[in-house]
């Protein structure tokens, strides 16, 4: 199991790194919103793996809530975005 943990950790770190590059580069706020969304899902993936390897269910509710929070965040921002580059 610890080998799997290392593989998954590496893959997720690379994924998070790529997403953070997009988060920095932008260029618009909408790109940043979806990058944040992806980052949140990567975090909840990491929590799932932690629960699987250590066999507990402490973070399960967080995984459910992460989807909802990401959803509310992106909907709110896209509702108020205006036609202004580099906003």
């Amino acid at each position: 199991m610890s080998v799997v943990l290392w593989i998954c950790g590496t893959i997720l770190s690379i994924a998070a790194f790529l997403t953070i590059i997009r988060l920095i580069k932008g260029p618009s706020i909408l790109e940043r919103v979806i990058a944040t969304d992806v980052l949140l899902l990567i975090v909840s993936a990491a929590l799932c793996i932690d629960m699987t390897v250590n066999k507990h269910t402490n973070n399960l509710v967080f995984v459910v809530l992460a989807c909802l929070v990401g959803f509310i965040g992106s909907v709110t921002v896209s509702r108020f975005v205006t036609d202004r580059r580099n906003a």
Binding site: I7, C8, I11, L12, A16, L18, S28, E31, I49
Partner: peptide
């Protein structure tokens, strides 16, 4: 687990490599 992580990686790569917002 490994496949699931690869899917997250695919999302990360896609975020970086697709040309515009709608494809991303």
């Amino acid at each position: 687990m490994i496949l699931g992580c690869l899917m997250s990686l695919a999302a990360g790569i896609g975020m970086l490599r697709f040309p515009d917002l709608l494809s991303r």
